[in-house]
């Protein structure tokens, strides 16, 4: 059963939650990989982060991987991230490639 991917479709939804440290991040990557390889139908990829408490570079890499593989035609969203989580995305400069919103507005 998927722990992170909630819905697959034109708008694909991924729920980031808890602590995504390097011991957990491979699980996220393993769920994202097949999803992204069958990317044809994905128009938007939405990462919900309202229940995400911590993310390390290993987790950030999964988001970078997704964005790189999906290409410019697919918009990637980060929704509901706390200031602490946003800080990590900003420090790595990844925030610039994401559509950051409090609530998903499409």
């Amino acid at each position: 059963m998927a722990n992170y991917v909630m819905e697959i479709g034109e708008v694909t939804k991924v729920k980031l939650h808890g602590h995504i440290d390097a011991s957990i991040a491979p699980e996220l990557m393993n769920e994202l990989k097949p999803l992204i390889e069958s990317k044809d139908e994905i128009k938007k990829l939405v990462f919900y982060a309202d229940e995400l408490e911590y993310i390390a570079s290993a987790g950030i890499r999964s988001v970078v991987f997704a964005k790189q593989k999906l290409g410019a035609g697919v918009e990637v969203f980060l929704i509901g991230a706390s200031p602490v989580i946003l800080d990590v995305f900003k420090m790595t400069g990844i925030d610039k490639f994401l559509n950051i919103q409090d609530k998903f507005e499409g």
């Binding site: 970078v64 964005k67 790189q68 420090m91 790595t92 400069g93 490639f97």
Partner: peptide, 12 residues
């Protein structure tokens, strides 16, 4: 790392 680099150029 260049945090201003384009996404495609970002090293993972």
């Amino acid at each position: 790392i260049d945090i201003d680099a384009e996404m495609d150029a970002r090293n993972i």
